[in-house]
């Protein structure tokens, strides 16, 4: 009876799960965050392109977010099944490299058109974006013009933020404020706390609350409005232009030393920055491509204002100071 139930269960799962990899082809195991391989993410678009090219099959292992990728790698160490880890961002690269698990990418990155110079030997950037305050222009015709204005004392329209301990944009804002305000960061956080509606665990909750009209501003990306333009034909939601510039997020991939498919892994990293792959990214991950796509970049992206300046802290500085800065944030925004 019991064994029959388990057999039934196995059958149900087997039929509901995606088709398993065929036995004779080599398999490339890629750890990534969940939304990358969701129905709307880049994964399903990239997979057939690469599989046709490599004669292999991809096995996606999806985790919650970039930070989960790093902790999973630390957890598994040299026993990890991953050939590729995809979806870390620049704030995590130093810490990831420090695990000693990452192998040099050996890819030709000369075509990159990132707003910053890229000389990292381990990580291959595949898309990027800028954190931004996105606002509802119907409710808020005059958004703040600068981070200084947003974090100035006094009342103002409310904003929904994310926790830097649990979310990538949340950490991005923490670094953004630190870089702009320096020693004044604590005061800036105290001021911002008065204008904060709430601080959610992740971007999804925050953006959902924003779209429900709970607050006129939310922490998101400069590319967010492109989604609403392209998919919903509305320019109601806009990204505020901040005089100080915007904090940059570069998403990267890397291959693992322990991989038993090093050639496939290298091939995949090269594929990631290829034109074929890059063309898929803007409308699936809603981020900028890392190479110049020319006219192939959707109009909505070309219409977006590019921030005055791209801010980015060295990854090792982030790794060294994150705990202290989070403590500072807790103390100044938490009371």
């Amino acid at each position: 009876m019991i064994s029959r139930r388990w057999a039934l269960l196995a059958a149900v799962i087997a039929t509901s799960a995606a088709a398993p990899a065929s036995a004779d082809k080599p398999t490339l195991t890629i750890y990534t965050y969940s939304s990358f391989v969701s129905e709307w993410g880049p994964g399903p678009a990239l997979q057939p392109l690469f599989e046709a090219q490599c004669g292999c099959s991809i096995n996606w292992v999806s985790l919650e977010d970039g930070a989960a990728l790093l902790s999973r790698l630390k957890l598994e160490g040299v026993q990890t099944e991953a050939d590729i880890v995809l979806g870390l961002d620049t704030n995590l690269t130093a810490e990831t490299a420090a695990t000693g698990l990452i192998a040099p990418h050996e890819a030709d990155l000369s075509a990159l058109t990132l707003p910053i110079a890229w000389d990292d030997a381990n990580f291959v950037p595949y898309d990027y974006g800028y954190f931004a305050v996105v606002y509802d222009s119907q409710i808020l015709p005059n958004p703040p013009q600068s981070l200084a204005e947003l974090t100035a004392p006094g009342d103002g329209p409310k904003i929904i933020l994310m926790d830097p301990r649990t979310s990538t944009p949340g950490l991005g804002l923490l670094l953004w404020v630190k870089q702009v305000a320096g020693d004044g960061a604590a005061e800036a956080w105290t001021n911002l706390a008065k204008k904060t509606l709430t601080v959610t665990k992740g971007w999804s909750e925050a953006y959902g609350l924003f779209l429900k009209g709970e607050a006129p501003m939310v922490l998101s990306y400069t590319t967010s409005p492109a989604y609403h333009v392209m998919m919903e034909s509305t320019d109601r939601y806009k990204a505020a232009e901040f005089a100080e510039g915007n904090y940059l997020q570069v998403e990267v991939a890397a291959r693992l030393k322990t991989s038993d498919q090093p050639e496939l892994a290298k091939l995949f990293l090269a594929f990631l920055t290829s034109r074929a792959a890059q063309e898929k990214l803007p409308t699936t991950n809603w981020m900028y491509p890392v190479i110049d796509l020319g006219d192939a970049l959707p109009q909505a992206f070309r219409d977006l204002k590019v921030p005055a300046k791209a801010l980015l802290m060295p990854s090792d500085q982030v790794a060294a100071n994150r705990s202290a800065w989070i403590e500072e944030w807790l103390n100044s925004a938490g009371q």
């Binding site: 969940s34 969701s38 999804s204 909750e205 959902g208 809603w286």
Partner: peptide, 13 residues
């Protein structure tokens, strides 16, 4: 549940 979170994460409210 995961599908739901994926949709939220992809602007699909």
């Amino acid at each position: 549940t995961l599908l739901l979170y994926d949709q939220l994460g992809a602007y699909r409210m």
